[in-house]
Nucleic acid binder design. Structure first.
Length: 245
DNA sequence: CCGGTTGTTCAGCG
DNA sequence: GCGCTGAACAACCG
């Protein structure tokens, strides 16, 4: 379910509850959810994969992790982790992390790191990458401090588009390649968003979960690479490794 | 029915 | 304190 673009869709869908008071709170979260009763939602925000429900003096952070899901004005058999009831409907969150944030969001989040934000700052991303020259590109695209909202699908698709082998180090890319990688990540995230809204995301996957490279017609390599050891699909022919040591 | 996964955190260890 | 590893969490699909 949840890479950054999916959280943006969630944020859009809950807008009818912005400014509304919470009339009932249920769910199996261990957090003190009673606190939310009679509170008015001031805004919904997001940072990368994190969904933020903002109140006057605190924020609820929802992270869907790998298996989390939500339903709006619907229920299913599973017990919700957190359920918020409003006069005009309800939001159910399942299998997610729920956390109260007490500090101002500006002190917690670097909005410029969110690949989907209007505050996204590609130059800041470049500076961060240049400070971690030995970082593998496959790991860089999963590092939330640099590319908040990017996940394993975005990683595989961006590396394919950029014709970069996942085991390249940042220091082995020239500045043009580095800037192109940064721009391509944001650009693919918005393609992801558009396709996801149209329920056609998978149809557009070129590398992720694919077996044959659409450019070369040879078999994709499939391996668990980098410090994150996430599933990586790549073409050993057209995704180039610039420094094989 | 089992294996696998669009993710993160934490304990334990060297 | 750091980096690394493994475990834990947990739901749905094929």
């Amino acid at each position: 379910m949840p890479e950054g673009p999916s959280i943006l869709i969630l944020k859009e869908l809950v807008q009818p509850f912005c400014g509304k008071k919470i009339l009932e709170v249920t769910g199996n979260t261990k957090q003190s959810k009673e606190r939310l009763l009679n509170c008015t939602v001031r805004s919904f925000k997001s940072w990368g994969k994190q969904f933020l429900i903002c109140f006057d003096d605190f924020t609820v952070r929802i992270h869907l992790l790998l298996f989390g899901s939500y339903l709006i004005n619907e229920t299913k058999a599973a017990q919700p982790r957190l359920s918020l009831h409003f006069e005009n409907g309800l939001i159910n969150f399942y299998a997610c992390s729920v956390k109260f944030l007490e500090d101002p969001l500006d002190s917690i989040y670097d909005w410029e790191a969110d690949i989907l934000s209007q505050h996204w700052n590609p130059l800041a991303a470049k500076v961060k990458l240049l400070k971690t020259p030995s970082l593998l590109v496959c790991d860089a695209l999963l590092t939330q401090d640099i590319f908040a909202g990017s996940g394993n699908i975005i990683k595989n698709e961006v590396l394919f588009r950029e014709r970069l082998h996942p085991l390249n180090k940042i220091e082995d890319l020239n500045v043009v390649q580095l800037e192109s990688l940064i721009d391509a990540t944001r650009s693919y995230a918005f393609d992801f968003l558009k396709w996801k809204k149209n329920f056609e995301l998978k149809k557009h996957w070129q590398a992720h979960n694919r077996t044959i490279c659409p450019r070369c017609n040879i078999a994709f390599k499939r391996a668990y690479l980098g410090k994150f050891k996430r599933r990586t699909f790549y073409c050993s022919n057209c995704q180039i490794l610039y420094n094989e040591q």
